[in-house]
Design a protein around this nucleic acid. Structure first.
Lengths: 122, 122
DNA sequence: TTATCATTTGAGCATCTGTTCAGGAGTTGA
DNA sequence: TCAACTCCTGAACAGATGCTCAAATGATAA
């Protein structure tokens, strides 16, 4: 494993383009950053966050139960769930009239869990 | 460790308020969800994400070097950094004319690292 | 001092977001 | 068939967001 260099010099007083370029190569690409930002953006709304943490606890919930956990209309919940489903953050299954939502994968669960721990005793 | 119950019944056809309430108690509170959402929201912008991942790699960078890593003005970078600093996501130190930014704590680094791994081979 | 550099601040503005409202689609049971 | 129920879709709109521009602050050097 390579030690991380600290870039001390600003390009104007001392170009140091080489180090900046070297760092840039090991960086996430702008495209990766955009995809990561998109993931975080979807978690970064109070309503969606509440829905996700409800699913983290309950495992699986239908829309009408999810609506109980937040303070917006069922329509708003549906819109929120569509965004999360399209992004692959949650998955759904129909059973009769109801549609049950769950977190899509273990990575999402880890992310939510780590963040919650961070907030509670970080 | 307690098994997670699946809530099958919608409140209208069969109230089941008890199970919903029990789940709600173990939930993050709306206030916690709001704080978590705020954290994610700040990571959920392409410019800020690029800056944060640059800091994750480089350890510490001045504003002028950070400006090189994104495609916006130095003013926009400064605005972005202020938001991150105010939220305690990054920290800064002055050295001469320059101000160096770094990730504030290990939790933030873990969060960024986990997310990146999620995207790359998730 | 004066000039220059690195960074910040505040204003203005176009764009994006999340909500509600009204209506539609799919499912169940009478 | 019909009505009731669960959930979704599209439109419209207030409010938030992120950018640039212009100007200010703090630090170094002549």
């Amino acid at each position: 494993m390579e030690a991380v260099a600290r870039l001390d010099a600003c390009t104007t007083t001392e170009p140091d383009e080489a180090r900046v370029a070297a760092t840039r190569d090991r960086l996430v690409t702008p495209e990766e950053a955009a995809r990561l930002a998109e993931l975080f953006r979807l978690l970064g709304d109070p309503t969606r966050a509440q829905l996700l943490y409800a699913l983290l606890e309950a495992g699986e919930l239908c829309v009408c139960d999810l609506t109980e956990t937040v303070d917006v209309s069922d329509t708003a919940v549906s819109h929120a769930l569509r965004l999360l489903r399209t992004a692959g953050i949650v998955a759904s299954r129909r059973s009769g009239r109801m549609i049950y939502y769950r977190l899509a994968d273990a990575h999402v669960r880890m992310l939510l869990d780590l963040s919650r721990e961070h907030l509670r005793h970080g």
